[in-house]
């Protein structure tokens, strides 16, 4: 999949964004992780025919993008690229669910269309929240935060190792695969046997690399437990951030903000 190579470039870019220095960047990662979780659960908990109630939730990504100085266009493009599965499933709704729910003058909109759009909006919100979390926090910091929130050290180290060697290994895999393509002369001679031996070689080299890494860890006093040095702390700013966003999410979940504004405005106009 060439898309993985592209995704890795994205990964590097997200990583670079996380190196930024803004008020959100500086917050302890735990506050951001927890706030994002509350946000996602709130969004997801809406009923399938709810649409307008979801709209006010765009305030969370919008504010974070603004304060964090993130490139909004780039994030939007990423989000649009990654929701094909949700759309693929959601697109069936209009066919199976034809009961008209909303009347806009002469136009009747079926529940299927509404739930389909609702699926897409949810995807944009939740995927966007995850991406923004990564962009203002950085993956290693998220891992450390999860560790301090109770994730086992073994798994944290696994994630950090994976993250570190993702780049090394995909480059290695990319080189091997290019070499094979160059010699298959567009004949699509990329059959199973050459694939298996290429993958086998890559696997063995990976294994040897693991042995060398293990050696270099031992050489620096590793005895099976990864040492962890924590620096940042959960202070007043973090508490405020978490409180404000959580209560806003809950408020918006329980009261339809868009409906409220809509009623207000149409009431004044009429």
């Amino acid at each position: 999949m060439g898309s993985i190579a592209g995704a890795l470039l994205d990964l590097k870019r997200l990583d670079q964004l996380a190196a930024g220095d803004s008020a959100v960047h500086r917050l302890d990662a735990r506050a951001k992780v927890l706030a994002t979780l509350v946000f996602i659960v709130s969004v997801i908990s809406f009923g399938r025919y709810e649409l307008s109630g979801l709209i006010p939730f765009f305030i969370f990504p919008a504010v974070l993008i603004a304060i964090g100085q993130l490139p909004a266009g780039y994030l939007a493009a990423k989000i649009i690229l990654v929701c094909p599965f949700a759309v693929a499933v959601g697109i069936f709704n209009p066919f199976f669910d034809r009961g008209v729910l909303v009347h806009l003058g002469p136009l009747g909109i079926s529940g299927g269309w509404i739930s389909c759009v609702s699926i897409v909006v949810r995807t944009v919100l939740t995927v966007g929240a995850a991406l923004i979390l990564a962009a203002v926090t950085g993956f290693p910091a998220i891992c450390r935060a999860l560790e301090r929130l109770g994730m086992p050290n073994v798994f944290v180290m696994q994630l950090l190792f994976l993250y570190r060697y993702l780049f090394v290994l995909t480059e290695e895999g990319g080189r091997a695969s290019r070499a094979r393509e160059l010699r298959s002369f567009g004949r699509r001679g990329l059959n199973l046997s050459s694939y298996a031996s290429l993958l086998g070689h890559l696997l063995l080299r990976t294994w040897q690399r693991a042995e060398r890494i293990h050696m270099s860890m031992l050489a620096r006093g590793y005895d099976g437990v990864m040492p962890v040095g924590h620096t940042s702390r959960f202070g007043v700013a973090e508490m405020l951030f978490l409180l404000i966003w959580s209560s806003l999410c809950i408020l918006l979940r329980l009261n339809n903000g868009a409906q409220f504004i809509g009623t207000l405005v149409t009431g004044i106009l009429s």
Binding site: R164, I213, S216, M217, G229
Partner: peptide, 20 residues
Amino acid sequence: DDQLFMPTVYEDVAFGPLNL
């Protein structure tokens, strides 16, 4: 690449001393 296995340079250099 075999020797630098932590997420940042700082953590890598600190790995040995932390173990000590």
